[in-house]
Design a protein around this nucleic acid. Structure first.
Length: 454
RNA sequence: GUGGUUGUAGCUCAGCUGGUUAGAGCGCUAGUUUGUGGCACUAGAGGCCGCGGGUUCGAAUCCCGUCUUCCACCCCA
């Protein structure tokens, strides 16, 4: 045998059973998006590296898949800077695979700004690629399902996104908690502890609080040049207890001197007020330790975690005030979230949340007894399909045992048996696979018999 | 990018400190049942022991490299 074929690390093939379940997730998400008035767009897998680079921080840049230029791309290369990847890469690659859907969307908005009707509500469900090292719940190619509304500052949008996650995860049967925070509050906290410049290291450090100990976090803060006094000031924030409303009241005290902090608190108060009126059924809370790395967020940030299972966030997003500014269009604010279809799949799969019916593709199978009998079946087959039923005929006149086994494994619920006897008497035998019950029916009444028994 | 881990039949795995024809369960095929799936019984097929190199009289087993898997970190969906 030749060497077995394989696929690149971190990528996957999806067989029919897996696809059925993936589609269940994606169809659910899509239908919810539509119900809130979002419209679909798609963008190319490839983007110019210039639109991708610098949007996700240094870490993100490293994780970009870069595409080699076509043709004799080495001919014009200057290697005065040495032969290392860093100096060579910009010379031999000017395209890359998209890293997420938000940045391409910002590019799209700027590019078509004159044709877009603002506020623009769009959804986008496509794969993205990251040159990460794969592990559980982390792939190099995975699907994101993004909803964003751009061109509106209203916090109603943030609230709506929470409502959407509520709808999606309720429908899929996943118990979740939505963690909400605000970059402005984080900035206020950075001001409060006297390190307004160190917003990013501070947030990254406190983001780890749910993973490591408070001592670890404090150590990291000190390592990043935060003074001991500042770390001491931070402690009451990290240990803040109580309901979201109680936390707001405490923050009022702490951040009284910070304009941006007060703005953040006000935003969150309003958001939570909206949420109260939306009758959200899943849990949501203010979580001051939620940071999120993507550095384009400026306002609300949110993340959804599945309860009952240890897994990274299955959904995340936030408000970005100036993502389009990078592409030369100022003053357009957007907010959006991204559902991780692959992680949602993993969660549902390990929790056994997929309904059995998710896999059934065909409802009715006609057994094949030979050419003559098959021709007897063909008009009946067409009749079922026209009635909207998924039906097929077994293509070979092999033993019935084999045909029934095929039906059994494919989850087909009804088998129509029409052999010599049935052809002669102008009937069909209808067999229900689940119960084993079967009945002889005049062929003219087959359709109503099958549809009425559903 | 750093540290670790894994790879044996289609799948899940066993194979002790190197020693003859590499095993099990499930699945698959055929039969018991010439027009009846699941259950049962019987028989059978199926392995470059991830790939490449090395040590040895002898390697699935030891060593090196490589790819892959999974985990922790980093970061994230």
């Amino acid at each position: 045998m030749v060497q077995k074929p394989s696929i690149p690390k971190g990528t996957r093939d999806f067989g029919p059973e897996v696809m059925a379940k993936r589609n269940l997730i994606i169809d659910t998400i899509k239908s919810v998006f539509k119900r809130y008035g979002y419209q679909p767009i798609e963008t190319p897998a490839l983007e110019n590296l210039s639109t991708l680079l610098g949007k996700y921080g240094d870490e993100g840049d490293k994780l970009l898949f870069k595409i080699l230029n076509s043709g004799d791309f080495m001919s014009g290369v200057q290697h005065t800077g040495g032969l290392d990847a860093a100096s060579l890469a910009p010379q031999i690659s000017d395209k890359g695979l998209r890293y997420d859907l938000t940045v391409p969307f910002a590019r799209f908005v700027v590019q078509y700004r004159n044709e877009i009707n603002f506020p623009f509500k769009r959804y986008q469900i496509q794969p993205v690629w990251r040159a990460d090292r794969p592990q559980k719940g982390r792939y190099r190619e995975f699907y994101q399902c993004d909803v964003d509304v751009i061109g509106s500052d209203s916090l109603l949008n943030e609230a709506e996104l929470v409502q959407i996650t509520d709808d999606v995860f309720k429908q899929l049967g996943i118990k979740t908690i939505v963690k909400i925070n605000n970059r402005k509050i984080l900035a206020g906290i950075a001001e409060y502890i006297g390190h307004p410049q160190s917003l990013i290291p501070v947030t990254i450090a406190i983001d780890k609080l749910d993973k490591t100990s408070i001592d670890e976090v404090n150590r990291e803060l000190l390592l990043n040049g935060i003074s001991q006094d500042a770390v001491d000031l931070l402690q009451p924030v990290l240990f803040m207890k109580g309901s979201s409303l109680e936390k707001f009241n405490q923050l009022d005290q702490l951040l009284a001197q910070s304009e941006i902090g007060k703005k953040g608190i006000e935003e969150m108060r309003n958001l939570f007020r909206y949420l109260d009126h939306m009758q959200i059924t899943l849990a949501y809370e203010l979580d001051l330790t939620l940071a999120r790395g993507l550095n384009y967020y400026t306002g609300a940030i949110l993340e959804v975690k599945a309860l009952d299972i240890p897994m990274g966030s299955i959904c995340g997003g936030g408000r970005y005030d100036d993502l389009t500014g990078i592409f030369g269009m100022q003053g357009v604010s957007g907010v959006g979230i991204s559902f991780g279809a692959d992680r949602i799949y993993d969660v549902m799969s390990t929790l056994g949340l997929f309904p059995e019916s998710a896999c059934a593709s065909t409802t009715v199978l006609f057994a094949n007894f030979g050419d003559l009998e098959a021709m007897y079946c063909l008009p009946l087959l067409k009749q079922l399909r026209e009635a909207g039923m998924n039906a097929e005929i077994f293509p070979e006149a092999v033993k019935m045992k084999k045909q029934l086994k095929y039906a059994d494994q494919k989850g087909i619920s009804i088998v129509i048996i029409a052999g010599e006897k049935e052809v002669e008497s102008n009937t069909v035998t209808v067999k229900w696979m689940k119960t084993g019950e079967q009945r002889s029916i005049p062929k003219s009444r087959m359709l109503e018999h099958i549809t009425s028994s559903d």
